[in-house]
């Protein structure tokens, strides 16, 4: 039972992060390898707002999340916008460079020490005992809820929202979308903003649950196989992919070798690339488009 809960929590983490990869890839065919760093930046924003808004902790969390929304949009407007029309590789490498830049900047600003934003906000982290004697911390439970809400919201937004529809349209055929009068820069900036927002949400909740330092990037990188296993352009796929990766990871830690934890997602990824490179729910022709 505890095992199932652990898998669920980890899957929720991966899924929440993975949807950021999917959003950006789906709209602009760019693989954002700075997602882990952007997510970490979101968590560090909480450290900043926690000291600024120590009176109202909820406010601090909300503002930190909104700030990451803005950061994501700005990353597109000031940096990635210049890379549209360039080779895909150049765009991906730009995100790699951005990742390094953020990593350096975060350490420069906040130093390499570990933070505990929960303590800074004066919150506790009570353990909830579930039926079947499984235990889950409050923030892990919140994480699962956040994932459910985010995915539900994204599904509705992409299906029925006017801007969601435009995002789908731009992802399918950016040229035609521009010809129809859709402001591609606005759509892309929105995708980057939402992606960074969801990533930061994950980062903030993880930081609240178990503290924060620069190793958080690794979690972001491990969530990426989840997105790819499910199919890089499919949200439903990311959900399932996260579950598979999380199950594999928790299972291996429990039954085989904890040292494998950081590699398991990538082993699953390689297996997937060998069997079905476009992922579980991905579109097959995506492979030829890159």
């Amino acid at each position: 039972m505890q095992l199932a809960v652990n898998i669920l929590v980890l899957a929720a983490i991966y899924a929440l992060i993975a949807c950021g990869y999917v959003l950006i890839y789906r709209v602009s065919r760019v693989l954002n390898l700075a997602h882990g760093e952007l997510m970490m930046l979101g968590a560090y924003m909480l450290v900043a707002t926690a000291s600024a808004f120590s009176m109202s902790p909820v406010m601090a969390v909300v503002i930190a999340a909104l700030m990451s929304l803005a950061v994501g949009g700005m990353v597109y407007l000031f940096l990635m916008r210049r890379m549209t029309g360039e080779m895909v590789l150049a765009a991906v490498l730009t995100t790699v460079a951005l990742g390094i830049l953020i990593r350096g900047a975060v350490i420069l600003i906040w130093s390499a020490q570990q933070y505990h934003p929960r303590a800074m906000l004066g919150w506790g982290n009570p353990v909830i005992t579930l039926p079947g004697d499984a235990r889950i911390s409050l923030y892990a439970a919140l994480l699962i809820m956040a994932t459910v809400v985010v995915y539900g919201g994204l599904f509705l937004f992409l299906r029925f929202g006017r801007w969601g529809m435009r995002m789908r349209a731009a992802g399918q055929d950016p040229l035609l979308a521009a010809q129809r009068g859709i402001n591609l820069h606005a759509v892309f900036a929105l995708a980057w903003g939402l992606s960074t927002f969801t990533g930061a949400l994950a980062g903030i909740l993880i930081a609240l649950d178990s503290g924060l330092d620069s190793t958080m990037v690794m979690i972001g990188l491990k969530a990426f196989p989840a997105a790819l296993v499910g199919g890089l352009d499919s949200l439903a796929g990311a959900l399932l992919g996260a579950l598979i990766i999380a199950a594999a990871e928790v299972g291996v830690i429990r039954f085989i070798d904890p040292l494998l934890a950081d590699v398991v997602p990538f082993i699953v990824l390689i297996a997937m690339l060998v069997i079905r490179p476009w992922g579980l729910f991905g579109t097959r022709e995506e492979l030829d488009r890159v």
Partner: peptide, 12 residues
């Protein structure tokens, strides 16, 4: 850290 940041900027 300065190295990281500067390297990222130069690459960009």
């Amino acid at each position: 850290a300065v190295n990281y940041a500067a390297f990222g900027i130069v690459m960009i």
